[in-house]
Design a protein around this nucleic acid. Sequence first.
DNA 1: CGTGAAAGTTAGAACTA
DNA 2: TAGTTCTAACTTTCACG
Lengths: 157, 157
Amino acid sequence: MEALDRQIVQLLARDGRMSFTDLGRHTGLSTSAVHQRVRRLEERGVIRGYRASLDYEQADLPLTALISVTPFDPAAPDDVPERLTHITEIDSCYSVAGDESYVLLVRVASPSALEELLAKVRAASNVTTRTTVVLSTPWEDRSPIDRPDAVEVDETA
Amino acid sequence: MEALDRQIVQLLARDGRMSFTDLGRHTGLSTSAVHQRVRRLEERGVIRGYRASLDYEQADLPLTALISVTPFDPAAPDDVPERLTHITEIDSCYSVAGDESYVLLVRVASPSALEELLAKVRAASNVTTRTTVVLSTPWEDRSPIDRPDAVEVDETA
DNA sequence: CGTGAAAGTTAGAACTA
DNA sequence: TAGTTCTAACTTTCACG
């Protein structure tokens, strides 16, 4: 990816609502040049969308957990992610190296909602689960597009 | 949290760049009433910010990993998160129940960058680490504000 | 990639229940 | 306190050079 695109992506990773005008000021491009580049980044799928980053404790989903998933039958074809997409409580699904096959990041309202969710996961796919409850979140969603070689962001412009 | 606020939060969790005009159309409020509520949600910290959701494979940070962290000396005061904040490769830091104390979600450019990062983590805080490499990401950042009792989102309006 | 203009959005003041 | 309408300033979008 090109330096200018990387800079735009970096700025939007930190402030997803930054205007094209401001993106232009920071990058030295005209508004419409930025606009064009952002559209291309969205089309290419580098930018997949924009999200409000929430405090889930305040947003009525105070229980976060990490669920490690292992398929029961190692011989069966592994279509676990497809089988789980419909479960909306799952924020992220990672396929991982190690003893277990997947790690799911989930958000629920209560311990009993977590119990129900685990039942849903096991019902949808033939797996065993190991759940790690998140006690607190010192921080989240920092979008680390702060690469060592990244262009400096001019906070004053 | 109130139903209208929850609906606004839900809409912004899915589309962080939705205009106040559209938020008003979806909620039945005037643009400025929405504007006011969003400002209050930001002030109260329910909405912590807005982020572009990225495809990190395309964004030059193709290696994602989960690092489980255990303090070496269980008697020492536990200030691990503060000691790690400056490490920008760490996207999220969760304090967890279980054998280990924290789980870090990190993004780096390469295996050698991961090696350096682990050295930085161990240098900053007196901990042992266990790293789980993410092989692929079936999905991420779905912002599951789809609670069972949540108001239906009208996609047509 | 930039310019410029039309259409759309934001932010805030004044007002109302 | 929470909402509305009004309006000036700003932003987005797009055809064209």
